[in-house]
Every structure is written in structure tokens, then in C-alpha cells.
């Protein structure tokens, strides 16, 4: 037995000739929030499905809560909670009926059932709405109910597949507060997301593209890998400049941020003079230019560009 919530070892899944997940390796400790980032179709959901024990890996191994995904999927299902992309609620059931259903499915003893439901309702703030039909809840509350359903059996590991897609920033923030609270209580959280500011909140993040993990580490570490090589340029016309600078030798990546461009470059000194020179030739006005520290989005943009 080890202390890890999730550990994978060259986890791989093929669908015919297509490799959806390719030799993925990572480990997640209890109490840790692990951010899994990647574009649609990059292999995130396939990875989750394998870890939840509902899809067998083609090769490689993984243990979840100490259980093998290939042979002990029933034990895994008891130890995990899963919040899916679509809020899988029964909209014609009330908040409490939804919770009651899941607590029975997870085999919570009858005498503990009501107590646990009240606990979860209180924790998520759903208590005032316990008798309301879940169809009548707003998006943010629906997602909290989905979370409540997934944790009614006190799982030690929680999977959240894009849990905040399509909900407002305030609800998103209060959902994250719940996630932190759970992490503090020692629950391991595996979160997939598109939002970079959410990725910043994770203890550890991994970028996946075309089934491969491009990089993995703490957000700050990842940003450090490209910091010092990032140049912010405010210039006009923006899109023309973006096309021209992209062709410069030494430019690895370029991203548009509002009225500025973020250039990811190999060598700061040489590139600055090159930018000034070509801007003059092409009639591009440079308003300002300065080295900046990287954001996760820059990391993501750079990584996906390097791997094309």
C-alpha cells in the first residue's frame, strides 16, 4: 500500500488504430488538486473513464485508491465520486430525492442516511432548496447538487470533468471553495478544465494533447520553464503584426492578449532588435515592448505549438 490516491504507469488506450491515451504517467496524493488540461478530444475523458474503472486500458496499469483499474473496478467505484460534464441530475426529482437516490445506490446505511444528506446539503449550501425540483435550480446550484450527489458516500477521490463549464464566475468561485475544503479534508481531486485561471488553483497540473502528457508539474514550475523568454508587445495593427512576428526566427509561440501580443522567444536580446527592425519595414507601430512572466495560457500555447 502506498499513500498515493492515483498512480498510473504507461496507461494506454487504443480504439482500433487510434491511440486515445498514450503511455500516460502521473501520480496524485490525497489532499491534492490535480488539474488535467487539454483541448477537446485530447484524451481527458478517456483517461477519466479508465481511472473510474468503466473502460479497460489497452496496456499499462493504474491504481486508484490502491485498487487496480483492471481487476478491482467494483472497489474503485465505492471509493470515488464522479461529477460529469453534463450535470447528471434527475431534473424531475427534488434536491433531497436526488441525494437520497445516490445515498441508497452507494449503500449508505439507512440510519445514517438522513444525517449524511443533511451534512452534504449544509456543506454545499443547498439546505434551503432541499424540496425544490432540481430542474428549477440555476446552473451554479445544479452543479453544486451534482457535486453533492457525487460526495454523499464520502469518496476519498473525486473526479470532476469540466465542472464549471457554462456557469457564472461567482458560482464558479464558490464551487472552488468547496473543492479546496474537500482537499483540506484529504480528498484527492482530479479536475479537467478549459479555464486557465482554474488551472492556476491546482496543486499540480498536466497538459495532455493527442493522448500524450506534454508536461506535468506545479503551476509555478511550469510557468518558470518559459518565463524569461516571454515578451509582451503592444502594437498596431495587431493581427498583421502577429502574422509577421510569427515568422521571425527564434519565435516559438505567439498569442494575442487584448491589444498586446505575447511572444515566446528563445533569446530575448536578439529578438527585440529583430522585432524593431521588421516593425519599421512593415509599418507596424510598436507602442511598448517588455519581458513579462508567463501565465499558464502561455505555457499551454507554447507547448501545443512545439508539439505540432
Amino acid at each position: 500500500m502506498n499513500n498515493l490516491a492515483i498512480e498510473t504507469n504507461n496507461l494506454t488506450r487504443h480504439f482500433g488504430n487510434f491511440t486515445a491515451v498514450d503511455s500516460v504517467n502521473f501520480s496524485i496524493k490525497y489532499g491534492e488538486i490535480f488539474g488535467f488540461l487539454g483541448a477537446n478530444g485530447s484524451g481527458k475523458t478517456t483517461t477519466i473513464r479508465m481511472l473510474c474503472g468503466i473502460l479497460a486500458p489497452t496496456s499499462g496499469t493504474a491504481t486508484v485508491a490502491g485498487f487496480d483499474v483492471k481487476t478491482q473496478s467494483e472497489e474503485i467505484k465505492q471509493s470515488i465520486g464522479y461529477v460529469s460534464q453534463r450535470f447528471s441530475l434527475y431534473s424531475d426529482l427534488t434536491v433531497e430525492e436526488n441525494l437520497k437516490f445516490y445515498s441508497q445506490i452507494y449503500g449508505i446505511e439507512y440510519r445514517h442516511e438522513q444525517k449524511r444528506i443533511d451534512e452534504v446539503l449544509t456543506m454545499t449550501g443547498l439546505l434551503p432548496w432541499r424540496h425544490r425540483l432540481s430542474a428549477e435550480l440555476s446552473g451554479g446550484w445544479k452543479q453544486k447538487l451534482a457535486l453533492a450527489n457525487a460526495i454523499v458516500h464520502k469518496p476519498r477521490i473525486l473526479f470532476l470533468d469540466e465542472p464549471t463549464a457554462g456557469i457564472d464566475p461567482i458560482s464558479r468561485r464558490s464551487l472552488w471553495e468547496l473543492l479546496y475544503q474537500m482537499a483540506e479534508e484529504g480528498v484527492a481531486l482530479f479536475v479537467t478544465t478549459h479555464y486557465m485561471e482554474e488551472a492556476e488553483r491546482c496543486n499540480q497540473i498536466a497538459f495532455i494533447s493527442q493522448g500524450r502528457i506534454l508536461t506535468i508539474g506545479q503551476p509555478n514550475q511550469l510557468k518558470d520553464t518559459i518565463t524569461g523568454s516571454l515578451l509582451e508587445i503592444e502594437c498596431r495593427p495587431l493581427m498583421k503584426a502577429s502574422r509577421i512576428f510569427e515568422e521571425l526566427p527564434g519565435v516559438v509561440g505567439i498569442t494575442v492578449y487584448g491589444t498586446t501580443l505575447h511572444l515566446n522567444v528563445r533569446d530575448q536580446g536578439n529578438i527585440q532588435s529583430a522585432v524593431v527592425k521588421i516593425a519599421k519595414e512593415q509599418n507596424i507601430d510598436i507602442i511598448s515592448m517588455k519581458p513579462i512572466s508567463a501565465s499558464l495560457e502561455d505555457v499551454f500555447a507554447t507547448l501545443t505549438k512545439e508539439n505540432k
Binding site: 467494483e74 467505484k77 465505492q78 460529469s84 453534463r86 447528471s88 445506490i105
Partner: peptide, 12 residues
């Protein structure tokens, strides 16, 4: 409604 997906990861 995608509820089946949710039930799959339960012990049922």
C-alpha cells in the same frame, strides 16, 4: 439526459 453515464461509475 446523461444519467446513465453517472450510474455507470456507481457500484450499481
Amino acid at each position: 439526459r446523461g444519467n446513465i453515464e453517472q450510474l455507470l461509475v456507481t457500484p450499481i
